[in-house]
């Protein structure tokens, strides 16, 4: 195992590739929502069949969980040597 210089040119680490990956990712996101025009998502409890419900629900739930974790952080987080003393 050796230390290498930080600026290597692996194709996945290039800014250009990262930009392209973002474009592809956003295109896929848009497609999964638009696909609901052609594919019926069965709503077992009403709302879950709404257009784009899965997308909105997934995003908002994750955002809420990140916010909750962030809010709990000051109460729960301690330096990782906390128990060593």
């Amino acid at each position: 195992m050796k230390q290498a210089p930080k600026s290597d040119e692996h194709w996945l680490a290039r800014p250009r590739t990262i930009r392209q990956l973002w474009i592809v990712f956003i295109a896929i996101l848009v497609l999964t929502v638009l696909a609901q025009v052609f594919i019926k998502v069965k709503g077992y409890f009403g709302v879950d069949g709404w257009f784009g419900f899965g997308a909105a629900f997934g995003f908002l739930c994750c955002a809420a969980m990140v916010v909750l974790a962030k809010a709990l952080g000051p109460f729960l987080k301690r330096d990782d040597r906390y128990y060593d003393d």
């Binding site: 996101l29 997308a55 997934g58 995003f59």
Partner: peptide
Amino acid sequence: QLLLFSGL
């Protein structure tokens, strides 16, 4: 939808 937007 659920998973990819979680990724977003």
